[in-house]
């Protein structure tokens, strides 16, 4: 029996056309469709697979506004046993780590699974942050996971290859693409999930140690529009290659 906690975040659909608010401190949220952050989806799927293979319970936790309820329903529909919603309108990474950490402290846990980063702000602070806050093991960017006898062996992506790491429970695992292919929920389960209980906590009522935030948001801006590709033309492969080398030297200055 493995007690698994999955931390998931609701983020704008990756196909959303982002518009920045006038004060440059946030994005326009009207009309945006929210989804489970794709890396968190891998984490959720892995949690359910571990439960199916080894037995245990899966508890999905999210911290966010009321609309984040959707992703907990989806988690319940694909096989999570419990869901906890920490209601919060905003919270920086450190605050999120500590608030969720305080909630996790009240629960039994062996493995905490989450995505390697959320695809909205892409900070990637949470996995190691929560491990540090709870004082437990941590393996990030995991693409393969094998559980045996209160410990696990994980493959994690490192520059140029894979690293095999072993750790005992409890441990925080952050999921990288390739860990698994998430399933689609059986549709009737979506309706059943709506009737199940989601435990709601107010972030304000959870006390966390005093902290100084590491940074504050100054301004958001959109990336510059991508320039079109440049076609290198010529009659023969030799001529094209010569032109390409010249361009790489003189225009791109990479050679």
């Amino acid at each position: 029996m493995v007690n698994i906690i999955v931390c998931i975040k609701h983020v704008p659909d990756t196909e959303t056309r982002i518009k920045i608010k006038e004060d440059k401190k946030g994005i326009e949220t009207t009309g945006i469709k929210y989804i489970i952050s794709p890396y968190d989806e891998f984490a959720l799927e892995e949690a359910i697979r571990i439960k199916e293979k080894h037995g245990g319970t899966v508890t999905a936790i999210t911290m966010g506004p009321k609309r984040a309820d959707d992703i907990l329903r989806t988690a319940l529909a694909v096989g999570a046993d419990n869901a906890i919603h920490i209601l919060s309108e905003n919270g920086d990474s450190i605050n999120t780590v500590m608030t969720i950490g305080e909630v996790i402290k009240t629960l039994p846990y062996d493995i905490i699974l989450t995505g390697k980063e959320a695809v909205d702000y892409g900070m990637g602070v949470f996995p190691s942050g929560i491990a540090e806050y709870l004082g437990i093991n941590n393996i990030n960017n995991v693409t393969k996971l094998d559980i045996s006898n209160r410990s696990l062996v994980a493959s994690r992506q490192v520059e140029g290859g894979d690293e095999i790491v072993e750790a005992s429970f409890p441990v925080v695992i952050s999921a990288q693409k390739g860990l698994n292919t998430p399933r689609y929920p059986a549709l009737p389960n979506i309706f059943k999930a709506k009737k199940r209980e989601v435990k709601i906590l107010d972030a304000k009522s959870i006390s966390v140690p005093p902290f100084i935030s590491g940074g504050s948001l100054v301004e958001l801006s959109l990336p510059p529009p991508k320039k079109g590709a440049k076609m290198v033309e010529g009659q023969t492969p030799e001529e094209i290659a010569a032109k390409l080398i010249k361009m790489l030297k003189e225009e791109a200055k990479v050679l």
Partner: peptide
């Protein structure tokens, strides 16, 4: 709400 989740699941 559940119809919205259901339809977005099908769309996905």
């Amino acid at each position: 709400e559940e119809h919205k989740i259901l339809f977005s699941t099908i769309e996905k």
